[in-house]
Design a protein around this nucleic acid. Structure first.
Length: 858
RNA sequence: GGGCCCGUGGUCUAGCUGGUUAUGACGUCGCCUUGACAUGGCGGAGGUCAUGCGUUCGAAUCGCGUCGGGCCCA
């Protein structure tokens, strides 16, 4: 018990506990009778390393998981890995100096799996070191058949209930990745391009059209003007000849056409942008697709066939300039859609793809049943739901993803979707065991694979036991995630849960902010503001990082990483350690009747428990941790411990035992309250005190002890005596000739004499000194609601009155205030009297407090 | 162009279902080596709560506008 080091050796203690903790205490118990608390943890993309942003998110999750466990819930804190996707494919190509088509499909997939497995191992290590209470018995890996079989089951069921269909439809296409992508994967950026003014010829004369994409000329299917545009009335309903390619297209009128952009005449192509798609559908225009899947021009483009989009743009511009078709060019700032992974400008192509129906109303309805923290984040989901125009394209032309369990009959083209009991499977590896309706058994496997969000959007269902468990544990209780993926992960999860099980996926969604670098920008290697969690573990330890996560800001707001915050956190750790080191040889877990100061401390402790419980229930980790810190540092260390030192160092007595047990209780409670935040130091302290793990303890409950006003008065007297000595330049332990405290509360003297190192007398009456009212302090809370617009004048009048007069009226029960010649009766509680002690002529100094008066002999 | 959020002492930040001395941390200044801790203790300085108008007896807090920043999207 005595070999507590002076300095807190965080690395030794944290590593000791990482090694010796039994992680099975964090396992979800499927048989338990306790209320469940299932967390739909984000499955990170296992590539690179676990970074500070991850650390912050997982800290939030861990605070909740540990707190809920202590509150008696059967908690599931699972961990999944969202493996599939392009970044890993690209990385594999890089590392092995191959492209995906140079090796067999299966071989390529194996390379991706290997890379992913390695990343998962790294993540495991970082997460363990951070002290996360993850339930590894509920780990899932989306690239493993056990999981992607579930994804496939969800595909089959949604196909069968009509939520999934296959169709020709315009899709966002990334020519570099060679795949369709969803709207959620398109990002926008401003680029400077050229606006070209071209001459088209019609029977009514020349039409001048401005376009930024001349290479789409062969895909032109119509020309449109605004119906209210007087300049072009005569063209409406006529046809116009597309130059170079020499074919006629109709001239349409549409009120969406912006008369002030370019010439006010717009060329509609299939497809230049989303607006083209809208027009194409509304006006039932034909399809002229000029760009192929590699982003090259096809046969329809005649002389430009085989050239890339950029090459065509340059060449056709040149040709048209030479022929005088383009007569003017100007720069144009334009927002271009980019593939969010590779930043290549996307094209819109019409392709046969698989789609999931999006029912925006149902999604919004489900979102309404979910508790959003903070509430305003729900608006983002609603805005997104309202702006979705096409269904969700879920097929991808890649390899490392969940296979679409479908074949096509070679003879009749019929679609054969796998039966649930065949899953998991890869149609490229396995032929179906049934015949097609037409009698043929020759099938072509579907080569396309599923969008990664198809995997991750069933995470809530998967952890809750879907599809096999009879007792499906839906809805889950909590979805923690970042605001950057509300339109994807949150949106798709709600959609899928709604469509597969007809319910909301979670009770609560907790949105966390992003972790920013010390310069206030998003952490990135290129900005050189990148901090690895391991650096922090080495310098100040995992508990310090976890404290920063709690105290750095409130959830939902972005939070800046700052070393000084980490340092501050580790100072508190050291402070706590010093308290522990001081207390350990002196405390005892004994029954004792608490003294006044003890009852003050225990009352404060009760208030702390109340406050932290409320804050935790509202996910206010910053409030919680600040309250604990304030209690431990100020209330306990700076005040209580200083007050009871004399008792603790003194001979055995009921008073000493009272201090010993109070301090014991305070320390034990702090260890419990901090366990969700700082699991290591909390464990070290609690385990030393109790010989058991703090992580299987319950959250502290209040003991019903109110703050003792006498104890509070003693604490305040001690503080004012310290101030008194400081003002006189005395050492804080220098003795005073004599102190007398006067209070109706009947104050105990032993703690005061100890802390002041002086003799203290306590009296319940007196002292015989003169008190003089010197000011009146109006109470707005009383006056405002009662007197409304008159309160301003009443305050002024009260301030102008003789304080002594107000005091005597107040004592009689009512105060008469003269306002604009009118006498108004004001209740006594509306005015507080500020008193001053007249000590002139006395050989004492007087310290006047709310509940006590102290005379100090000079 | 639209939506959402934010703008609080030198820095970061709490409060924001309105009530008059605005929270805490870091920094800064002065004092104190008191038997857990100088990575400490005590005390102080420092803010027109971005800005303008409005609602109200009363606004950091509610409304509108402006300026600045961030995020999501068109």
């Amino acid at each position: 018990m005595s070999e507590v080091s002076k300095e807190y050796n965080f690395s030794y203690i944290e590593e000791k506990w990482v090694k010796s903790w039994d992680s099975s205490i964090y396992h979800f118990d499927w048989e338990s009778k306790k209320p469940q608390y299932i967390i739909d943890t984000p499955p990170p993309y296992p590539t690179g390393n676990f970074h500070i942003g991850n650390a912050l998110n997982w800290c939030y999750i861990d605070y909740v998981a540990r707190y809920k466990r202590m509150q008696g819930f059967n908690v599931m804190f699972p961990q999944g890995w969202d493996c599939h996707g392009l970044p890993t494919e690209v990385k594999v190509e890089e590392l092995n100096h191959i492209t995906k088509n140079q090796v067999p499909r299966e071989e390529f997939r194996r390379l991706c799996e290997k890379l992913t497995d390695e990343a998962i191992v790294r993540f495991h290590k970082s997460m363990g070191r951070l002290g996360l209470s993850i339930d590894w018995s509920n780990e899932y890996v989306t690239m493993k058949p056990e999981y992607y079989g579930k994804t496939q089951t969800s595909f089959v069921r949604m196909y069968e209930n009509g939520q999934i269909y296959r169709d020709d439809h315009p899709v966002n296409w990334c020519p570099r990745c060679g795949t369709a992508i969803a709207f959620a994967e398109v990002e926008y950026d401003t680029r400077t391009t050229t606006l070209n003014y071209m001459r088209f010829v019609s029977e009514e004369g020349e039409m001048q059209i401005a376009t930024s994409r001349p290479e789409l000329l062969p895909a032109c299917v119509a020309v449109a003007v605004n119906p209210n545009d007087e300049r072009y009335q005569k063209f409406i309903g006529k046809t116009v000849r597309v130059p170079i390619f020499n074919y006629e297209v109709p001239v349409l009128s549409d009120s969406v056409v912006d008369t002030s952009f370019g010439t006010g005449i717009v060329m509609i192509c299939t497809f230049g942008d989303r607006q083209d798609v809208r027009w194409w559908m509304e006006h039932h225009l034909p399809l002229r697709q000029a760009i192929d899947r590699e982003g090259k021009l096809n046969a329809i483009a005649g002389p430009y066939q085989g050239l890339s989009v950029t090459e065509t743009k340059n060449k056709i511009t040149e040709d048209m300039k030479n022929e005088g078709i383009i007569f003017k060019q100007e720069p144009l700032e334009q927002n271009v859609g980019l593939c969010w992974r590779c930043k290549t400008p996307i094209e819109i192509l019409s392709e046969r793809q698989w789609f999931v129906k999006i029912n925006a109303e149902e999604i919004k309805k489900a979102a309404d049943e979910i508790n959003w923290v903070p509430p305003h984040m729900q608006v983002r989901l609603k805005n997104w739901a309202d702006s979705v125009e096409w269904d969700w394209c879920i097929s991808r032309q890649r390899i490392f993803a969940t296979p679409i369990p479908v074949w096509y009959c070679r003879a009749c083209g019929e679609v054969l979707v796998a039966k649930e009991e065949w899953l998991p499977l890869d149609p490229n590896q396995k032929q179906p065991s049934v015949k097609c309706k037409c009698g043929s058994s020759d099938f072509i496997p579907e080569k396309d694979v599923l969008d990664t969000w198809m995997d991750s959007s069933i995470s809530a269902l998967a952890v809750a036991g879907w599809p096999n468990r009879k007792d499906l544990r839906m809805p889950t209780q909590l979805r923690p995630q970042g605001h950057d993926i509300i339109r994807t992960w949150a949106f798709y999860t709600i959609l899928r849960t709604q469509s597969l099980e007809g319910m909301r996926p979670w009770d609560t969604i907790l949105i966390n902010g992003m972790a920013l670098g010390e310069d206030g920008h998003k952490m990135s290697k290129s900005l050189n503001n990148f901090i690895r969690p391991e650096e922090v573990f080495e310098v100040n330890g995992a508990d310090a990082l976890r404290q920063w996560g709690a105290m750095g800001g409130s959830p939902g707001n972005d939070i800046m990483f700052q070393w000084k915050e980490i340092t501050a956190a580790s100072r508190f750790q050291q402070k706590l350690w010093s308290i522990f080191r001081f207390a350990l040889p002196l405390i005892a877990d004994v029954d004792a009747s608490p003294c006044q100061v003890d009852r003050w401390l225990l009352g404060e402790l009760d208030q702390l428990i109340d406050k932290t419980t409320q804050a935790m229930d509202a996910f206010q980790f910053d409030e919680t941790m600040k309250a604990i810190r304030g209690f431990a540092w100020e209330t306990l260390a700076d005040n209580y411990i200083e007050l009871v030192k004399a008792r603790l160092y003194g001979p055995d007595s009921p008073e000493k035992r009272a201090a010993q047990s109070t301090l014991f209780k305070a320390l034990e409670t702090i260890a419990r309250l901090m366990a969700p935040f700082t699991p290591f130091i909390s464990e070290e302290i609690f385990h030393t005190l109790r010989g058991k793990s703090v992580h299987v303890q319950s959250w502290p409950k209040t003991s019903g002890i109110a703050v003792d006003p006498a104890g509070l008065a003693i604490k305040e007297i001690a503080a004012s005596l310290r101030r008194y000595k400081a003002e006189l330049g005395m050492a804080l332990n220098s003795p005073l000739p004599g102190i007398v405290v006067y209070s109706e509360l009947g104050l105990e003297t032993f703690d005061l004499s100890g802390v002041a190192n002086s003799n203290v007398d306590s009296r319940t009456t007196g002292p015989e000194i003169e008190m003089k009212p010197v000011a009146v302090k109006p109470q707005m809370k009383i006056l405002g609601p009662r007197f409304k617009d008159k309160s301003g004048k009443i305050i002024k009048a009260l301030g102008g009155m003789d304080p002594a007069d107000v005091a005597s009226q107040k004592a009689k029960g009512s105060i008469a205030v003269l306002v604009d010649g009118e006498t108004i009766e004001v209740p006594p509680e509306a005015a507080e009297i500020v008193m001053e002690t007249l000590s002139a002529g006395l050989a004492v100094d007087v310290l006047r407090l709310e509940k006590a008066t102290v005379l100090v002999r000079r």
